Computed example of a mutant assay.
Amino acid sequence: MLLLECPCCGQRGEETEFHCGGEAHITREGPGADDAAFENYMFERVNPKGVHLERWRHVHGCGKWFHAARDSATLEVFGTYAAATHRPPEELLETIRAKRPGFKWRELA
């Protein structure tokens, strides 16, 4: 079972209280995007076995979006942070790298 803490309201709960919105820190292209950019947005995703950065929404709580870093193999949650940030907090990245040496994530390598 996945236990998450919403960084917006501080409530902690099971994953059924939240909704996963896919990969975090990607550019979400809209109707004005060219074909190549929209194709990249739709189909070019990472699906690692290991640490994954995701968007989550607290649907049965404050309703706000946030990001979470978790291990897709063990379900260990390393932390959550506000969705308005463009990259994970450095303390969170240090925690992940300490537990998972060699961790790389797209441009955050």
Rank of each mutant, 00 (worst) to 15 (best):
G13Y: 01
H67N: 09
A24D: 05
H67Q: 06
G63K: 07
R12C: 13
F66D: 01
H60R: 13
H67C: 08
E23Q: 13
H60I: 00
F66H: 01
C8W: 02
I96N: 06
R100M: 00
T85G: 14
E44C: 14
R57L: 02
G22Y: 11
F43K: 05
Q11G: 03
C62A: 07
W105E: 01
I96D: 09
E23R: 08
H25G: 03
F43H: 02
E14M: 02
V51K: 00
K49F: 08
F78Q: 00
V77P: 00
H86E: 15
T16R: 11
C8E: 12
P48I: 06
L92P: 04
E29R: 10
G21S: 02
A98L: 09
P89Y: 11
S72Y: 10
R97W: 00
A83M: 05
L92E: 05
L92C: 12
T27D: 14
G32R: 09
Q11S: 10
Y81R: 15
A73V: 03
P48Y: 03
R106P: 06
A84E: 15
T27G: 09
G61V: 07
K64Y: 03
N40Q: 11
P101W: 07
R100L: 00
H52D: 12
V46F: 07
L3M: 09
N47S: 13
G63P: 05
G21V: 00
C8R: 13
R57W: 03
Y41D: 04
L108R: 04
E94C: 10
A109G: 08
H86N: 15
R87N: 04
E76F: 07
L75Q: 15
G13V: 01
E14F: 04
E107Y: 08
A109Q: 07
H19I: 14
G21W: 02
G102S: 02
V51P: 00
G63D: 07
C9L: 13
F43Q: 03
A82Q: 07
H86Q: 15
E44H: 15
K49G: 09
T74W: 05
F18A: 00
R70A: 06
T80K: 11
